[in-house]
Design a binder for these strands. Sequence first.
DNA 1: GTCTATAGAACGATAGAC
DNA 2: GTCTATCGTTCTATAGAC
Lengths: 214, 214
Amino acid sequence: MNETQQKIIEATEIEFAEMGYGGASIREITKRAGVNVAAINYHFGSKETLFKEMVRYRIEPINRLRIDMLEAAQEKSGGEPLPLREIINFIVRPLLTTLINESCDDFRFMRAIGKSMAEERPFMKELHRDILKEIISKFSKAISESLGNPGFEKTAYGMHFVSCSMLGVMMQHRRLQFISAGQIDLNDIDGLVDHLVAFITAGLQAVSTVNTNS
Amino acid sequence: MNETQQKIIEATEIEFAEMGYGGASIREITKRAGVNVAAINYHFGSKETLFKEMVRYRIEPINRLRIDMLEAAQEKSGGEPLPLREIINFIVRPLLTTLINESCDDFRFMRAIGKSMAEERPFMKELHRDILKEIISKFSKAISESLGNPGFEKTAYGMHFVSCSMLGVMMQHRRLQFISAGQIDLNDIDGLVDHLVAFITAGLQAVSTVNTNS
DNA sequence: GTCTATAGAACGATAGAC
DNA sequence: GTCTATCGTTCTATAGAC
């Protein structure tokens, strides 16, 4: 990827995070990137493929990291189920350490990826289904085993809430500053990861043992 | 609100849920509602005020319910802190029972409200700040007391994760069907509420006692 | 590979007839 | 209150000069 393409991707992230897919225009993106209007169609083919490229470009390294960490730990444990907290850490930490980057103080990586996951346009839903397939199957198996196979329904609710929490955290990150009256540093990755891992781990354990009266 | 306005609001919810604010056009909305293009500007003034009206129209009854339930329980307890699970139930149950309506099988209420909360346009952020002010202050006080006042940072992280989880659940509701391979009924409000309340309550308790090494 | 110019369609909003 | 017609703008995409 050359310098022009990098500048376009960066401008796309900002524009997408702020305006959504429908509100982001290639004219604004090229203006922000300081390149010509025709550059997007030349380098990426269309608005749609530009946004798909941008999402892949950010998500795929994260998922590779997650799977590597999970498989390394599984190999080391010799087939024994891993502690739940460790698995959740493999999901959360690569995401937040990659997407919160101090050199980018607007958190545009996070916000853009969050927006893309909330996007209902078919081409985006297909993209995410494709990107998340492997990670969902591997992690839900590991989590289910760690919880002692609590059953299909509880595992499904649990996995759902895990992904919902992370989506919310990505989309709403800057609200932490508002909600904490400025006392929490948005760049404190370890603080956020530690608290979020604790939240999700305990939540998941509770879901797997919830007593439904039905 | 007359019949024409109702039809416009309903069409706006669908269009907004699927396309976002930037992608939704008043032409598509009026076409879907079966009314004339000029009807939106006549009845609502502009695209912006139409979307604001729609959000208020759905959220305000929910927040009134939540606050009534909280204050009734507080009066009954005579100033004693309420059990955490009960408070979380007051936040979650009115939201999901109001937004999941069997007569509306596309879950457009939920998805539209979720999208509106993820919207970064200033007029939407202001609207939500205004709508959520009272509820955040009352519930964060109740939650903090119920947890034994764990300190500012932990309360802030906790409240943040509560709202993030609910936002994700609103936006991603239909993924439950995919993630459960069709085994979970999307209209099973009690099942969803029971599991989500368990998840959030346990998560919040864990956050309030997390041991950060910093 | 980068530009200008423009085609062709869709946009929000409104004026004015009925 | 509801319509048609239309203004002025902006959109994605591309053709063709350099």
